[in-house]
């Protein structure tokens, strides 16, 4: 089966759902796992990058997460979606990593896509009479990332997952191994702290 599927075109694998791809990957089918990576890599990268604010760390951790995912794939029983399962690995690995490197955090940011200037949120924020209007894009980006880094790992994870990636509370609870009430409470306090840090842009 493994040989047959490895000969399959990427187009064929793209038609399969995550569950079928996981089944194949559990049988040692690397192209199936590659397809899973292709589907979820972007979001996982975004989560790790926004947690670390460091592009090199994000790249390394994405690789670690998918390597670990493949090694423990036989333990995946399908009780949750593959997406939730791999996210859980990513969240835990990133929280541990951020805790370890706490004293040597350096920002190394990705480039900003210039289409940001036509985003309604950006247009609205820059139309108000706040320092935001006079701030350069790179300065704004740096302030935003620095503010995120002031949060604790768990609070930062909740903000990134909910406010940046749009993951629902219940799903975040599953990923972080806590109740959705805890997620809401963390989100509330994290937002309060961020508002204090970024008050010049938000008030």
């Amino acid at each position: 089966m493994s040989k047959e599927s490895s000969e399959e075109t990427t187009g064929g694998l793209a038609e399969l759902n995550d569950k079928e791809l996981v089944k194949r990957a559990q049988g040692g089918d690397l192209p199936a796992y590659d397809e899973l990576m292709r589907r979820h890599q972007g979001k996982i990268y975004g989560l790790i990058y926004n947690m670390t604010s460091n592009q090199q760390d994000a790249e390394d951790l994405v690789q670690e997460v998918f390597l670990k995912g493949y090694k423990v794939l036989d333990r995946f029983q399908g009780k949750s979606s593959f997406y939730t399962w791999i996210y859980r690995i990513a969240v835990n690995r990133t929280i541990n990593y951020v805790k370890q490197r706490r004293n040597r955090s350096a920002l190394s940011l990705n480039d900003l896509d210039l289409s940001i200037e036509s985003d309604p949120a950006y247009v609205e924020l820059s139309s108000r009479d706040t320092p935001f209007r006079d701030t350069s894009l790179s300065e704004m980006q740096e302030k935003l990332n620095a503010a995120l880094q002031t949060l604790s790992e768990k609070h930062r994870a909740v903000v990134v997952l909910h406010d940046i990636q749009g993951v629902p509370h219940e799903e975040i609870g599953k990923m972080m191994g806590c109740s959705s009430g805890t997620v809401r409470s963390r989100l509330f306090y994290a937002r309060q702290q961020l508002q204090a840090e970024l008050s010049e842009y938000t008030s």
Binding site: Y45, G46, Y49, N50, Q55, A58, E59, L109, N110, D111, L112, D113, S115, I116, D119, A121, Y122, E124, L125, M140, Q141, L144, N145, V159, D163, I164, R191, L194, L198, Y201, T202
Partner: peptide, 12 residues
């Protein structure tokens, strides 16, 4: 949250 959503434009 609008401000945070702008982080999506930081692309690898």
């Amino acid at each position: 949250v609008s401000l945070l959503s702008l982080k999506q434009y930081e692309r690898p």
